Simulated scan of single mutants.
Amino acid sequence: MSAVAWIAVGSLAAWGWLSLGQGFFWRTDQRLPAREDPVVRDTPENPAGWPSVAIVVPARDEAAVLPDSLPSLLAQAYPGRAEIFLVDDGSQDGTGALARELSARYGGLPLTVATPGEPEPGWTGKLWAVRHGLALARARDPEYLLLTDADIAHAPDSLRELVAAARSNGLDMVSQMARLRVASTWEKLVVPAFVYFFSQLYPFRWVNSPRARTAAAAGGCVLLRADAAERARVPESIRQAVIDDVALARAVRGSGGRIWLGLADRVDSVRPYPGLGDLWRMVSRSAYAQLRHHPLVLAGTVVGLAVIYLAPPVAVLTGLFGGDPAAGWLGLAGWAVMTGTYVPMLRYYRQSLWTAPLLPFTALLYLLMTVDSAVQHYRGRGAAWKGRTYARPETAP
């Protein structure tokens, strides 16, 4: 066989292993677990049985999305005591004032708006804001903390369902991957693949198994027991982490906590990424940090993406136009398995299944975004976000 055919064999073998041996990452059935604990059953006669919750929202220049997200938090139908702490992280667009205006207009849960000042050395901006918000929240002695981003909209029963799931299953942390916006053409092409790749890297079944070592979370929606946060020294133990959600999950699991991660049905991101440039910046700002800023890991990632995602269509073209039928059939088989594993994610996002065969093209975009992330890092512009640049961010010891 030709070299292309042998590469196609390797790609097909990789897809066989990924589809069966990587925690069935491609399935989308990891949703909130059973919620049957009688302590938190939905009975208006016994609201005192529900634990208190402090909701911490770090926000930097979020005036564009706040009208679509904050009212959903204010309107939470939660039977117990809950209040919101929005930390305005040096915004220049009136985020704090807008939050107070929305609270006055909609009412609902109590809202406190605070400003922490510029982060101290060794802290990322978001975690500095979270630190300030947690300090305010802990003064109220809540049993649970909900960490949620300013672009996340929650269904009215979202908090109640999160707390019920945590209490019913003895979980220290429950995190939901918010359903991201898919309105523009580029969002439809890139966003479902983002979640698909994330679940491939951190299979949700492995994360949710108490016997597994894999740890991950989705930073847009994390419910955390307050005592578990104390044991894990959150956020001090992860103060330099750019990929703070994964670092948070590792800290909680490393301190003996039980964690859970799944796809959301009641939690949505309202942040728009209308153009390819917007999505490119979203991915590239942290892609190289995910690889621990290691050139050899980057090289291995590039080769791996090329063999797994790009080799099958190249082999098909070689078979069609290069007179290599073995390469063509092997490439087609690998491409078919790849496409089949992508279908459930497209269904979750209610997208046309005809886009599934385009996954190799999307993977090529992610490959280029990852390389660009490394280039920006070595130029001293790595992890740039909303006016701040973390040239060499790392997780704190």
Rank of each mutant, 00 (worst) to 15 (best):
R271Q: 13
R213I: 01
L261M: 13
L279P: 00
R292N: 08
W280C: 01
R281F: 12
L263E: 09
G262F: 04
G220F: 01
S269W: 01
L291V: 01
R239Y: 11
P295D: 05
D265I: 00
S237T: 07
Q290F: 11
R239P: 10
A212H: 12
S209N: 13
R258C: 04
R258A: 13
S286K: 15
D265G: 15
L223H: 06
Y288P: 06
V246M: 08
G257V: 06
A247W: 08
A217S: 13
R258G: 02
P272Y: 12
L224D: 03
H293R: 10
R213M: 01
G262P: 11
A287F: 15
D245I: 02
P210G: 01
R258W: 05
V234Y: 15
L291Y: 10
Q290M: 07
L276Q: 03
D244K: 05
R281W: 13
R239E: 09
V222C: 13
R211E: 14
G219Y: 02
R213Q: 11
R231W: 11
V242I: 13
R285K: 14
S237W: 08
R225T: 02
G254D: 07
G257P: 09
D245Q: 07
L291G: 04
V252C: 06
A249T: 02
R285G: 00
A249F: 12
Q240F: 03
Q240M: 09
R258F: 08
Y273M: 14
R231D: 08
N208I: 06
W260R: 08
I243L: 12
I238M: 08
V267P: 11
A218E: 10
V252L: 15
R271H: 14
A216L: 04
R233N: 12
G277V: 06
A287M: 02
P210C: 04
G257I: 07
A229N: 03
Y288M: 07
R213V: 04
S284G: 00
A287N: 08
L291K: 03
R281S: 10
V252Y: 11
W260P: 06
L248Q: 07
R250I: 00
L291I: 03
R225E: 12
